[in-house]
């Protein structure tokens, strides 16, 4: 039985902190849950914190990109934060550049990016 990751809501953003080694089923569950939650809360941003993840394989990497695309369809920006150097190197060696996914060094900077986008949106309106 694979676990379901908790999704936290902060204002108009959703936060998922990945604390365990990801198996394929968990990632698929996360994709489902996130899509549901984004719609339910009308979220504008999704932050996926992978600070604690030591292993990100090609499947998980692709899934992060998929989650970003799904959220974008639902008008929410996805930011992946806290990627470890070793993980970044592995992904580059695997030839994955996570096209379309925004990244930030840490949670603070990730939330700052979303705040910036939100300000821009209010300015437009």
């Amino acid at each position: 039985m694979s676990e379901r990751l908790p999704i936290l809501r902060i204002g108009e953003n959703l936060l998922v902190s990945i604390q365990v080694d990801l198996d394929d089923q968990t990632v698929l569950n996360l994709q489902d849950d996130l899509a549901d939650q984004v719609v339910k809360h009308g979220a504008r941003g999704v932050v996926i914190d992978i600070t604690a993840a030591e292993i990100v394989d090609s499947f998980v990497g692709r899934m992060l990109a998929t989650i970003a695309s799904i959220s974008r369809l639902l008008d929410a920006e996805t930011v992946v934060v806290g990627m470890r150097p070793a993980v970044a190197i592995t992904l580059v060696e695997l030839g994955l550049s996570l096209g379309g996914v925004r990244t930030a060094l840490n949670l603070e900077q990730g939330l700052a990016i979303l705040a910036e986008r939100s300000t821009a949106r209010t300015a437009q309106a």
């Binding site: 974008r72 008008d75 920006e77 930011v79 550049s97 996570l98 096209g99 379309g100 996914v101 925004r102 990244t103 930030a104 060094l105 603070e108 900077q109 990730g110 700052a112 990016i113 705040a115 910036e116 300000t119 821009a120």
Partner: peptide, 21 residues
């Protein structure tokens, strides 16, 4: 620039194409 738009410490500009949507 990042500071002026209120993003504080800034942040990665992400990957090309991220600005879509």
């Amino acid at each position: 620039d990042a500071a002026r738009t209120g993003a504080g410490a800034g942040g990665g500009t992400g990957i090309a194409g991220a600005s879509g949507a």
